[in-house]
């Protein structure tokens, strides 16, 4: 059974303007347990709105969100519970830090879950380890940290709730390449270790290719594609039409293929490209 399921979900904003504006329309997806899903799409395609439905922050105007097969809007209690089962980390999460110390801030979520002292302590230490925050930093004020560190503390705050599904909305936005790689490696390690479902929203096709097992493409409030990385990226033309770009390496290999060079088209990262080229060169030597 899928862990998260969206059944005919639509959401319309009416407050902001007199004309009705659909943020997402008729979304049907199933997310299986243990998957690492990357959500990509143009600005305003409804990515953020969609993920805010998964933990009950937004109520669908139509349709249902099923968590473990149960409607999360069944009662007030199930909505509250879904906040813990589905951990959502917002864009620029460092702006939500407020406690006196790093430790207390990470513990905010578990504390709201009414866990015991020991359980909280365990959860905090584990989450801090995932994001690479050492115990020596626990007593520091979160406002004294660097930007990247703040971001990681904030992500740890969500991880510490030990959610079944972890959702990260553009976790690498505004970070330098080093900080970005660090966050991506961290997500991968977390998923590998916990075997839990992770969903992350991103602008970067490269990042998604590096991490995700499945890709969800949003276009104009609708789900345009939801498939494996290979299947989605091979539809490069459609993606370009939506204003998305396949990674540069992929483009190179696709045009190589067009010119009759015998290379695989499923190349999304520089590392894969290097391996493929070596294979090709090594092969021609023989």
């Amino acid at each position: 059974m899928p862990v998260l399921q969206a059944v005919n979900v639509s959401h319309r904003y009416t407050q902001a303007s007199p004309t009705q504006f659909s943020a997402i329309e008729n979304v049907n997806i199933e997310i299986e347990n243990g998957e690492l899903v990357g959500i990509i799409g143009h600005t305003g395609s409804g990515k953020s709105t969609l993920v805010q439905h998964f933990n009950g922050l937004l109520k669908p105007t139509e349709g249902k969100i099923l968590l473990d097969g149960k409607d999360i809007w069944e009662s007030k209690k199930t909505v509250h519970q879904s906040r813990f089962k589905v951990g959502l980390c917002f864009q620029y999460p460092e702006y939500q830090l407020f406690e006196e110390t790093v430790y207390k801030d990470i513990a905010f979520g578990p504390k709201n879950m009414k866990l015991s002292e020991e359980e909280i302590d365990k959860a905090v230490r584990k989450a801090a380890e995932y994001v690479g925050i050492s115990a020596s930093m626990f007593q520091k004020s979160p406002f004294d940290l660097s930007g990247g560190e703040k971001r990681r503390v904030a992500i740890a705050g969500v991880m510490a709730m030990e959610p079944q599904v972890l959702i990260l909305d553009e976790p690498t936005a505004g970070l330098d390449p080093k900080g970005r790689d660090r966050i991506l490696d961290m997500i991968k390690a977390y998923q590998k270790d916990t075997k839990k479902t992770v969903i992350f929203v991103s602008h970067s096709m490269e990042d998604v290719a590096k991490l995700a097992t499945k890709v969800l493409v949003m276009n104009k409030s609708r789900v345009a594609m939801y498939d494996t990385v290979d299947n989605v990226y091979s539809r490069a033309e459609e993606l370009t039409e939506m204003g998305l770009n396949v990674p540069q390496v992929t483009k190179i290999f696709m045009s190589l293929k067009k010119q009759g060079v015998d290379v695989s088209q499923n190349i999304y990262t520089v590392e894969q490209g290097k391996a493929e080229l070596l294979r090709l060169l090594g092969g021609s030597k023989k």
């Binding site: 509250h80 980390c89 999460p93 979520g109 969500v158 709730m161």
Partner: peptide, 10 residues
């Protein structure tokens, strides 16, 4: 935005 973020943390 901040309210949503803190609500997401329970």
């Amino acid at each position: 935005k901040i309210m949503s973020a803190q609500k997401a943390r329970g």
